[in-house]
């Protein structure tokens, strides 16, 4: 889902502006809501997510993919801004090694940090009461991938590098399948965290 340099034509500065504004609010959130303990914590989490993203996972159809982790971070930290911060760091370092472009970094953070983080967190919050906590995590993690993929298709179409109908169809179809794996992995991972360190989860605070 990492967009490379040149594929956004002239539109890349727009996403930089959106991303810089979002990062301003994310840092403001971090200053107001987190104690200084969380700065090392978010940093080390970013290193952990980087390693998690480096792990190839088999996907049906004989291809492979890797975790994105935006929904995981947003749900465990109880805020989409945490996902924005962690994913920005991961994507920034990846861009210095050619995984996603330098000019496309704004768009990549916009898709995988902001859109995926807010979709994941928002759906989880909206659905946890009606359908239960863990089904909500599954849907949220799946949607975080799916919606981010649609955003990529729309951005490429705006830039004029890939037609909208084909892009929405293929990006959507492919990531709808991949999202199932992200959803399942996120659910099992959060279940495992709940068993071992329930105090880390927003709903388990003070419970351990």
């Amino acid at each position: 889902m990492h967009i490379g340099d040149g594929l956004l034509s002239w539109t890349w500065p727009i996403y930089y502006i959106i991303t810089i504004i979002a990062l301003y609010f994310a840092l403001k959130w971090a200053r107001e809501n987190l104690d200084e303990k969380h700065i090392p914590l978010l940093a080390v989490m970013a290193a952990g997510i980087f390693a998690i993203q480096a792990m190839n996972i088999p996907i049906p159809w004989g291809t492979s993919g890797h975790m994105m982790g935006a929904a995981l971070v947003a749900i465990v930290f109880g805020s989409p801004w945490a996902a924005v911060i962690v994913l920005s760091m991961v994507l920034l370092v990846q861009s210095f090694f050619g995984d996603g472009g330098i000019t496309a970094l704004g768009a990549n953070i916009f898709n995988m940090g902001i859109i995926a983080g807010f979709t994941g967190y928002g759906l989880f919050e909206a659905l946890k009461k009606p359908i239960g906590r863990f089904p909500a995590i599954f849907v949220a993690a799946w949607a975080s991938i799916f919606v981010a993929a649609l955003a990529v298709a729309i951005e490429l179409a705006i830039a004029g590098t890939f037609p909208l109908d084909l892009g929405l169809f293929y990006m959507g179809l492919y990531h709808a399948v991949i999202g199932l794996a992200e959803g399942a992995i996120t659910v099992v991972a959060i279940l495992a965290i709940q068993n071992v360190r329930p105090d880390l989860l927003p709903w388990g605070k003070g419970g351990s």
Binding site: K37, P40, L41, L42, A43, V44, M45, A47, G48, I49, A51, I52, M55, I57, P58, M67, L72, V76, A181, A184, I185, T186, V187, V188, A189, I190, L191, A192, I193, V196, R197, L200
Partner: peptide, 21 residues
């Protein structure tokens, strides 16, 4: 297999969290 991967990722998450602390 997916479950094993999820455990690996949960383990990584916990290790990085605890290391961060």
């Amino acid at each position: 297999r997916l479950k094993q991967i999820a455990y690996t990722i949960a383990m990584m998450f916990l290790r990085s969290y605890e290391r961060g602390e």
